[in-house]
Amino acid sequence: GEDLPLPPGWSVDWTMRGRKYYIDHNTNTTHWSHPLESGPSSG
């Protein structure tokens, strides 16, 4: 998808195989999909 801006506290990194993933430092979790690309989340 597009390179959307990341929310505060997020960063992007790549695996050893070159796969892009996103790090949420607020909750110390990692995600394969961009936080703003996922569907609407409630709460």
Rank of each mutant, 00 (worst) to 15 (best):
W10D: 01
L4K: 10
H25F: 06
K20F: 04
G18A: 02
G39L: 13
S11G: 06
G9W: 06
S42E: 13
G1Y: 12
L6T: 01
L36R: 07
S33R: 14
V12Q: 07
D24S: 02
E37D: 10
Y21V: 07
N28C: 11
W32V: 04
L6M: 06
P5W: 09
G9H: 04
R19H: 15
L4Q: 10
D24Q: 03
E37I: 13
T29D: 03
L4R: 10
P35I: 02
S38L: 12
M16E: 15
R17S: 15
W32F: 08
L6R: 05
G43C: 11
T29M: 06
G18M: 03
D13N: 14
G43R: 09
L6W: 00
M16W: 14
T29Q: 07
D3L: 10
S41D: 12
G43V: 12
T27S: 07
P8T: 08
S33Y: 14
L6I: 06
K20Y: 03
G18I: 03
P5L: 09
W14V: 11
D3A: 10
E2L: 10
I23D: 00
L36D: 07
T30F: 15
H31R: 06
I23R: 07
N28G: 14
H25E: 06
S11L: 03
I23A: 01
Y21S: 01
L4H: 08
P7V: 00
P8Y: 08
L6A: 01
P35Q: 02
L4I: 10
N28S: 07
T30L: 14
H34M: 05
G39S: 13
N26L: 07
P7G: 01
T29C: 01
G9R: 02
Y22Q: 00
L4W: 10
G9V: 00
D3K: 09
H31S: 08
G39E: 10
D3W: 09
D13I: 07
K20P: 11
P40S: 13
D3I: 10
G18H: 04
H34G: 03
D24K: 02
H34E: 02
K20V: 09
N26Y: 06
R19G: 07
W32E: 04
L6D: 09
T30V: 15
N28L: 06
P8H: 08
D3M: 10
S38P: 11
V12G: 03
L36N: 08
W32N: 04
R19Y: 13
D13H: 15
W10R: 00
D13T: 07
S41I: 12
D13F: 09
Y22I: 01
G39A: 13
E2H: 11
N28D: 08
G39F: 13
P8L: 08
G1S: 14
S11V: 07
N28W: 06
T29I: 06
H25M: 06
E2A: 13
W32T: 04
S42N: 13
P7Y: 01
E37F: 11
R17D: 15
T29F: 03
G39N: 12
P7T: 01
